[in-house]
């Protein structure tokens, strides 16, 4: 559905995206993660044709969204800014876009969407009087006015209360599972992404650092993380010193008798035999599964170092 191929974007000589490539398949909920300034919004703008890549290409169904008005009819967006006209009413905002997208049965569709986001009773109020959450809901309704099969959401639940966040999550899941729509989700809400996305890419400083399904990314980054418990708690301190001195250990942390170790290379059995040779008895050794948050923070921190 979306094919981003070796895209580089430079602004005044400064590289914002550096040869990124990824694909989003039809029906996917694709989570695009990264800290502020990583290049998430720039990527989305390039796919939407608001910016041109310096090199590479970003296509939707093999076509360029920016130069293809027909293709834009199948795309819905909620950008960082809600894109609402504050002096117009909720109804007028939706009607404007319904006209731009040439929606048939405008009245019926607007009513349906306003009821869906719980704003029908307030349809004749000016949007300027709405709360942040209400505006976000209205923007979501606007993005669906023409029943697009590809949706771009930039931080859709940012600034919303927990109930509204849940509504957004449920909406995205429903759009994908029941209506088979493809969703491109820009976010740094890791909990939201872990709950709803089928695949993710983590962007940092203009480069893709991880790209796969949520599970595969977690597994890939969990390969070398282990937790071990020493048999005697008094051995824990010397075990920690020993592990820290090993050149194949990346990080280690102690929590009472438990020590969490991330290995750069070599296997857990090498670590185990090293400890045993030094007379430290290990009672338990287990592989740890990292959460998406751990993976994300690892990437961001590694880069910072």
């Amino acid at each position: 559905m979306i094919d981003v191929h070796k895209v580089t974007k430079k602004f005044n000589g400064k590289t914002v995206l550096n040869g990124i490539s990824f694909e989003v398949k039809e029906g996917d909920i694709f989570g695009y993660l990264g800290p502020n300034g990583a290049g998430k919004t720039t990527t989305m703008r390039i796919i939407l044709g608001l910016l041109k890549p310096t090199t590479g290409e970003a296509l939707v169904r093999g076509r360029n969204v920016g130069s293809d008005e027909e293709l834009r009819k199948s795309v819905g967006v909620v950008l960082e800014n809600d894109g609402l006209y504050e002096r117009l009413t909720a109804y007028d905002n939706l009607e404007y876009y319904a006209q731009l997208y040439d929606v048939s049965d405008r009245k019926g569709r607007i009513k349906e969407l306003l009821e869906f986001v719980g704003l029908y009773e307030r349809r004749n109020e000016k949007v300027g009087e709405f709360s942040r959450g209400m505006k976000r809901k209205l923007a979501l309704a606007r993005s669906l006015i023409h029943e697009p099969d590809l949706l771009f959401f930039d931080e859709p639940s940012a600034g919303l209360d927990p109930e509204a966040q849940r509504m957004v999550r449920d909406l995205i899941l429903r759009l994908s599972k029941e209506e088979k729509r493809t969703v491109f989700l820009n976010s740094h809400d890791l909990d939201e992404v872990q709950r709803i996305c089928t695949s993710i890419a983590i962007l940092h400083r203009g480069a893709i650092k991880a790209y796969d399904s949520v599970e595969n990314v977690r597994r890939a980054f969990s390969k070398s993380v282990f937790a071990l418990a020493v048999a005697r708690e008094e051995d824990a301190e010397s075990a920690l010193d020993l592990i820290q001195s090993l050149d194949y250990v990346s990080t280690c942390e102690r929590d009472n008798a438990w020590i969490t170790v991330t290995l750069k290379e070599k296997s857990a059995s090498t670590l185990l035999s090293t400890l045993v040779r030094k007379g430290i008895k290990v009672e338990e050794l287990k592989k740890l599964e990292k959460s998406l948050e751990d993976v994300y923070l690892d990437i961001v921190r590694q880069e910072a170092q």
Partner: peptide
């Protein structure tokens, strides 16, 4: 200034 135009530019109008 209010960045509303960005959404409009995504609509199927040149």
């Amino acid at each position: 200034q209010e960045k509303v135009i960005e959404t409009l530019l995504c609509a199927p109008v040149s």
